[in-house]
């Protein structure tokens, strides 16, 4: 049911781990629904370039793969470029996701935004309008299609 790309990123996830001296940390999701993504970034304060990024994820195979792909997509990019990354871009880069797993990619987009929000907060800057606050996205708003065993 998963593409080869998804299975590759799931079984050999890129950028797993923590960054000790991260200056941007975002966590989204909720253990109740079974998915939490935490993203650490090291952002160059002069250039606003994301120099390093790492993640930890509690979730299904798609959640791990989308976290891995999202970190790949934003690594080396500027904060502004990273904010342009949509869940759709993550899905496309993974050669697609099953419909019931699309919310995992939404979570990855939110995790990146939440980390960048945290970066602005720490610098004492006003985040760009529309950027979600870190942490408050922890609701079970995604819906899996209901299937019977």
């Amino acid at each position: 049911m998963y593409s080869e790309k998804v299975m590759d990123h799931f079984s050999n996830p890129r950028n797993v781990g923590e960054i000790e001296d991260a200056n941007a940390v975002g966590e989204v999701g909720n253990p109740q629904c079974g998915d939490i993504m935490k993203i650490y970034m090291k952002i160059n304060e002069e250039t606003n370039i994301i120099e390093d990024v790492k993640f930890k994820t509690f979730g299904c195979g798609a959640a791990i793969a989308t976290s891995s792909m999202a970190t790949e997509l934003v690594k080396g990019k500027s904060v502004d470029e990273a904010l342009q990354m949509t869940n759709k871009a993550v899905v496309e880069a993974l050669d697609g996701l099953p419909p019931v797993k699309l919310h995992c990619s939404v979570l990855a987009e939110e995790a990146v935004q939440s980390a960048i929000f945290n970066y602005y907060e720490r610098k004492g800057l006003t985040p760009p309008a529309g950027l979600k606050c870190s942490g408050c996205c922890s609701s079970c708003h995604h819906h899996h299609d209901h299937e019977e065993e």
Partner: peptide, 28 residues
């Protein structure tokens, strides 16, 4: 940990089992 990842890795090792996780059942 979440069960689906466990099942996928077991599958790669040639083991078929199941989980009570929401992610594998298709329900929330």
């Amino acid at each position: 940990i979440e069960g689906e990842g466990l099942l996928l890795f077991l599958d790669m090792k040639g083991i078929s089992a199941s989980s009570g996780s929401a992610c594998t059942s298709g329900s929330l």
